[in-house]
Amino acid sequence: MTAKEVLRLEDIRKVYHMGDDIIVEALKDIDLHIHQGELVSILGPSGSGKSTLLHIMGLLDSPTSGKRYVDGIETSTMDDEEQARIRGEKIGFVFQTFNLIPSLTALENVELPLLLCRKQCRDRKGHAKALLERVGLGDRLEHLPSQLSGGQRQRVAIARALVNDPEIVLADEPTGNLDSKTGHEVLELFKELHKEGRTIIIITHDEYIAKTTKRMIRIRDGQTVS
């Protein structure tokens, strides 16, 4: 039985126009298939186009050309509002700098995506609380991000990424701002979540991290290399 395809990129190109006649081709002919339950790392040095790829995979940006299917839905020509909806329903983000909202507690940060969901979201608090307990922060619910350590903040961010039960979790250098021990713990958490059936894509420049995943995709100069 083959797992369903949650993300497919076909001939994705992304071109930036800087000034009048400078054209930067950030991504060229990217083809990528991600199946449900995969743990994939995308490895590339800075400037390789991996951030652009992340933005396109996460529907934060649209490709210049090519097709992008998320959970079988063609999304490359969607307008901002539709992309926002798909993002809210099917994508969970984990960022290098955690990107928690400083005025909200851990629990409120995790709850935030549910505030924005269009469906009637039942028991938001309970769901958010359960996830924080899952990532080992059951005793930090009412703490503000500033009262948490880096590792704890990233766990809150991971709980937030999971709260809308996304098809894909996109993690952008999730250990980049953590010491190696805490970074390792966060990686372990991703592996556990993978075992629980989550689809996780980790973008990194760190070979070591990339090697811990089953599948690794290298990207260089805007192209995938095998």
């Binding site: 996460g58 934060l60 901002d80 509002e81 926002a84 909806r85 993002r87 809210g88 329903e89 983000f93 990107n99 928690l100 909202i101 935030l112 995506p113 924005l116 969901c117 937030r160 809308n164």
Partner: peptide, 15 residues
């Protein structure tokens, strides 16, 4: 930055 985060977690322009 916060606006970016909100958008990343699914906030639309209207939100």
């Amino acid at each position: 930055k916060e606006i970016g985060i909100l958008k990343a977690v699914g906030a639309r322009q209207g939100d």
